[in-house]
Design a protein around this nucleic acid. Structure first.
Lengths: 219, 219
DNA sequence: TTCTTCATGTAATTAGTTACATGATTGA
DNA sequence: TCAATCATGTAACTAATTACATGAAGAA
């Protein structure tokens, strides 16, 4: 039986989409593909079952519609759903969780070859390029006045700003790492560390420490 | 039965650690906590069962030891394990996958309050501060010549460089977002988008597009 | 008419987490 | 000798993925 305890972040994410407008499951899948998947990615089959749970909890209701001869279900949020969403938004969320397989491979690359790392870094750059291209297309549509939800523009800018910074950071790091690895000998085990690199990293980390220290922010 | 197909990224990550030196499970857990968990986080119980799978596959062998009266198991990589690891490192890895619950909440904040966002952003900044503090401590130990695996220094710098950039990016974004949201009226629905913000985001995204375009990198 | 894509799902499996359990060691 | 924490695990559960299935609509 579905209880309020069975609500996961994914459930609330779908509930949040329903708070914007009613969607069919197919539309939900497409919408997640456009936005949420960049920072909360879930398989399509998951998106098909979450709305049913929301209905069972009384947070959404299902309306049967017809597209030509075939039936389809559109989901809409209920007042109880809005209350549940509001309560969840007021709770503190978890910080970013990263899974970065290419970096795992680089981390163990003393068992591999220089070519392996360079190939992985090239893939990382290509990944950032792809993600950013889709993001850029969205940004250009917004500039052209074609946002689907203009009342959400200010919020979307916060998210868009994050994603652009994120992809930029990944790409710049991968380009830097490529330039470093290119100076390595063929066998990664023989690579000599550059002391200037550690010093720069520590200096950057110290700057960040000052930037984020509570005392500093309280001024 | 364990087959080569049952090897996940997590399995290879543990195998990669065994390639550095033999570890007991307890030491593996501690080591993952120090490094891998930042970009490949797994529960402790998972780390206890992976080495057994590696032994079943012939990629590791278990040696019984004694610490005082209690027995413990130390795992070492086998030649077959080294070959499997090498083959895996040569395959292309997956790009970064991010799960960022605080951003999910911000994304749906038109159903919440301005205070909710500000609280989440403060938590994000605090998160970056914490992560960076641990990272900085490691960096300082390296500067002091206290690295546990000096032969891995050059590789560790690549990873350390990524993490510092990552935490910096998260913190700078959260500070920027905080300054933007502070200018909002109390009801997030009434927030007016600043057109300069979109233009800056699009300009940044265009710069990244040029930076990462294949044509550009081929020069 | 056939192929492709749109659209809507279900079933089987698994990777991973949470919670529990317990003895050994160490310091107060 | 008591509490804390070090150290080593297992059992139960679940969130999520992969793979499969199928009919409708539209294009070639």
């Amino acid at each position: 039986m579905a209880t309020a305890r069975s609500m996961t972040t994914t459930s609330y994410a779908i509930l949040g989409l329903l708070a914007i407008k009613p969607w069919t499951t197919y539309e939900l899948v497409a919408q997640v593909e456009r936005s949420l998947r960049r920072f909360w990615s879930r398989a399509q089959s998951k998106l098909y079952e979450e709305p049913k749970k929301l209905v069972a909890l009384g947070y959404a209701r299902a309306v049967q519609e017809h597209e030509g001869r075939r039936p389809r279900t559109r989901y809409a949020i209920t007042p109880a759903g809005r209350r549940a969403l509001k309560a969840w938004l007021a709770e503190p969320g978890a910080g970013p969780e990263l899974e970065f397989e290419q970096l795992v491979k680089i981390h163990f690359t003393d068992s591999g070859t220089k070519q392996d790392i360079l190939a992985n870094l090239a893939a990382t750059i290509e990944w950032a390029h792809q993600q950013n291209a889709e993001n850029l297309a969205t940004g250009r549509r917004v500039l052209a006045g074609e946002s689907p939800f203009p009342q959400r523009a200010a919020i979307n800018h916060l998210v868009g700003g994050f994603l652009t910074s994120y992809y930029t950071m990944v790409a710049e790091w991968a380009l830097w790492a490529t330039s470093v690895v290119q100076t390595w000998p063929d066998n990664p085990t023989d690579a000599q560390p550059d002391p200037r690199v550690v010093r720069r990293i520590v200096r950057d980390a110290e700057a960040l420490d000052r930037l984020t220290s509570t005392a500093n922010r309280r001024q």
